[in-house]
């Protein structure tokens, strides 16, 4: 579980996060949604420890990050898996080497043991064996996301963070990736936080949704209540597409 207490963050005098407090429970997919410029990425980077909030606290399983020593902070980082928007796979390494990288860096396992684990997670994300020796540029965007997920979970993390995991993917592949993240969250019983503005993801896996606007937490709930909320900012965001406007209209008409 991750608990956020009134965090604020400014850059060059401009306040990007204006006092956000929320809780991301364990074993669920937690979504951060909002328009571009709402502060989602900065918020996620604060959760990851890449940015230090100016004020406020972030507690990981009850322990505040700021109270950790350097070694404890590094240890916490090793318990985090991150799926970046573009995958952020290392160009100079093959798929296998990318996934093995955290094991090589942080464990003393033998190569056969590491290979076994790599194969296990690549199988888990349904990546065909023929792709394992390829370089990131040789595989599709969807496959790159699968490899990124495999790399994020190979060290059995306690926290999984995903930044726009569906960007650049076709709707079908996006759904597959969403469901994969949901399954992994339940299977590994981890705290997953996903930064997205994809409404399909909200519908598929929004077990907890946090809506940010202008650096503030405007609304929180889940996929069942988001379509019923009266919050104007949320409805404006949710019903910005024709499809969802029609759904809303049908709901209001009781169809």
């Amino acid at each position: 579980m991750i608990e956020v207490q009134d965090i604020r963050k400014s850059f060059d005098g401009e306040e990007i996060l204006k006092g956000i407090s929320t809780v991301f429970p364990k074993g669920q997919t937690n979504l951060i949604i909002g328009q571009s410029g709402a502060g989602k990425t900065v918020f996620l980077k604060c959760l990851l420890g890449l940015f230090r909030p100016d004020t406020g606290k972030i507690l990981y399983d009850g322990e505040p990050y700021s109270s950790f020593s350097d070694e404890e902070q590094r240890e916490l980082r090793r318990q985090m898996g991150m799926v970046f928007q573009g995958g952020a796979l290392f160009d100079s390494m093959t798929v296998e080497e990318n996934v093995m990288f955290p094991l090589r860096m942080f464990t003393k396992q033998s190569r056969p043991t590491m290979m076994k684990r790599v194969k296990e997670v690549l199988d888990r994300v349904n990546l065909a064996e023929g792709q394992h020796k390829k370089y990131p540029v040789e595989i599709s965007g969807g496959m790159q996301k699968r490899v990124a997920i495999a790399r994020a979970i190979v060290n059995r993390p306690k926290y999984l963070f995903c930044d726009e995991p569906n960007s650049g993917l076709d709707p079908q592949t996006a759904t597959v990736i969403d469901n994969l993240i949901l399954e992994i969250t339940r299977e590994y019983d981890i705290t997953t936080v996903i930064n997205t503005h994809d409404m399909n993801s909200v519908l598929e896996i929004g077990e907890k949704i946090v809506f940010l606007q202008n650096g503030r937490l405007e609304w929180e709930g889940d996929k069942k209540v988001i379509f019923k909320t009266e919050n104007e900012a949320v409805t404006e965001f949710v019903y910005s597409s024709d499809l969802f406007r029609k759904v809303r209209k049908a709901q209001l008409q009781g169809l």
Partner: peptide
């Protein structure tokens, strides 16, 4: 620079490297 642009450096930092 390309590693910076494609967030590969962020990936290293997140891993605690």
């Amino acid at each position: 620079g390309t590693m910076r642009v494609t967030q590969q450096i962020d990936a290293l930092e997140v891993m605690g490297i």
